[in-house]
Design a binder for these strands. Sequence first.
DNA 1: CCGGCGGACTTGATCGTTCCAATGGGGATC
DNA 2: GATCCCCATTGGAACGATCAAGTCCGCCGG
Lengths: 343, 343
Amino acid sequence: MTRIPGRALTVPPTLADVAERAGVSRQTVSNAVNNPELLRADTLVRVQEAIEELGYSPNRAARNLRTRSSHLIGLRMSPVQEFTANAAADRFVHSLVDTSREAGYQVLLFSGDATDPESGYDDLLRSTAVDAFVVTDTYLGNPQAAWLRERRAPFVAFGRPWDDPSATHPWVDVDGAAGAELATRHLLDKGHTRIAWIGWRKDSFIGEDRRSGWSRTLKERGLPTTGLASRVEDTVNSGREASAVLLDEALPTAFVCASDTLAMGVMHTLAERGMHAGEDVAVVGFDDSQTAQVMHPGLTSVRQPLEDVAIEVVSALEGLLAHPRRIAEGKLLTPTLAVRRSS
Amino acid sequence: MTRIPGRALTVPPTLADVAERAGVSRQTVSNAVNNPELLRADTLVRVQEAIEELGYSPNRAARNLRTRSSHLIGLRMSPVQEFTANAAADRFVHSLVDTSREAGYQVLLFSGDATDPESGYDDLLRSTAVDAFVVTDTYLGNPQAAWLRERRAPFVAFGRPWDDPSATHPWVDVDGAAGAELATRHLLDKGHTRIAWIGWRKDSFIGEDRRSGWSRTLKERGLPTTGLASRVEDTVNSGREASAVLLDEALPTAFVCASDTLAMGVMHTLAERGMHAGEDVAVVGFDDSQTAQVMHPGLTSVRQPLEDVAIEVVSALEGLLAHPRRIAEGKLLTPTLAVRRSS
DNA sequence: CCGGCGGACTTGATCGTTCCAATGGGGATC
DNA sequence: GATCCCCATTGGAACGATCAAGTCCGCCGG
């Protein structure tokens, strides 16, 4: 990797170094890297050998400057939520990193004020540090989507534009209603008829979507839903309290929950009453968190196809960057059910 | 953000645009951004107004090219481990992103072959895409540390250089022995005298370190350790099997585990035998995963101070980049114990 | 009145790549 | 044998910032 003998080992070779060694011009080396089909076969081989010998990799900064693109995707981390069972974020980030790499992109993590949706985005955008964003925290509508669209920032959302159906940005989402339906049908198949729902506050679009899957499935079968539903905060304790009330007042034999966190609350109630999940009462959660997988008994849970979400997100991103003014579409994926002993 | 009326809104202004508007030279604008103390107060105000009006942010690529630094830190993601209770990675990444930002750095995520420690690093290094790396997966020694050192790549490790005490790179680690000691003392205080250990295979340096905290604490008190320890794979089922054997053969009243995953295995055994964690047998895990927090009963667990680790890592990184040839030192942090009802 | 000094700002060169227009050589065409 | 064309390859300019020298100007002391 040395250019001048005696200089620091850390000075990497440049195009010019490779060109000199291969006896060609800089541009030819550049073509060998980016458009090899333009070169005659023997020249290509010669240049590639020189590249290999010197250990050359194109300087990212210079390339970014010239091409006005960084091949970086910005992803804002939502704050860690302790005391919840949310493993979804982690799995998604992994999938996104892997999928992006295959498409030639890398992921730049950043964080910002939770209260201020724009914070962090603005600077990255203006300094052309990233080519595009992936927006994930869309649980209560996505304020930053409008903001980004206004600035013509390329981005793909994981999550539907609930609050603005006319939004024109590309998005990918998982069909929460279908997931809840899957869970409910599974319980119906097991013979349950009084199936309760514990979900989120009414202002959560995602929560209402998931809930609709539960209610429509029961209604289709002519089974009752009234008195069997509860809407609470997404905490273990809320789930515990809600399930205690429901058990006393509505006598359900099964619970479908909007999250694994809430499902854990149900498990607490059962444990306190000496009841056994999967035997006395069935419980199904949502997100297939690590907790659902490792606890005893295993928690049946709706699993989001996050690997597929990442693939679709990257694919949408590629389309967006290749054809900036193409009309964006949304993509809805269907979750699966990881069945374990709690149901 | 427009320069030429009618052009795309997305062409950001440059230093020259700001200079023209403020009636100064490019360099003066550059100084206003990077060394404001060099400017006369009135000039500074004028330039800052122009920056504000145009919505200027320095182009990252150009700056990176000229200064030969990207202000990016590379972090390789280790593969997702499902069916374990590991929440540590997630919490650490969050802390690292937040801390880095305060120091003016951002985090570039990348992934590589799990089998090949170098994959991914090499390209980023040669293309000068990142200024430094944070290396985390050092559970079985860190092969990539030697590799990185050899290439004079700046990096900080989260994890001691177990296999090479003479290593000269900066590192930060959490004292696992102290953590296990904390857990063991807590159980001693509760009156337990037969305290078992379930840990990892002997080739895990981290596992042996944690184990030593357990054994030395018991030996100090003259309490038995023989027959009370088990070394297995880090899976729930291994923990379940190991605890079943120990319960039958060694009659422990408490378990200290090298991970929450193993502790969950103990919980399974107890549940299967109709025993209650925290009443019949005490259980302590390691890592304070989300599962430990949300399960029933709550799992007492050793909590790594990952926020502090991130702070120390970034601080070491700053030192490294500011003084490339300074002698590196290691830093060892002490964990805490999150006490819950399982003990 | 002059030389020297230092602070405030400017000018030209440069980082390493890709874009663009141009060049040279060799074969096919007339 | 001259013309045309096409392909591989070349040299110069540009991307937008910072670095390293300047230049200008006012002020001070002698």
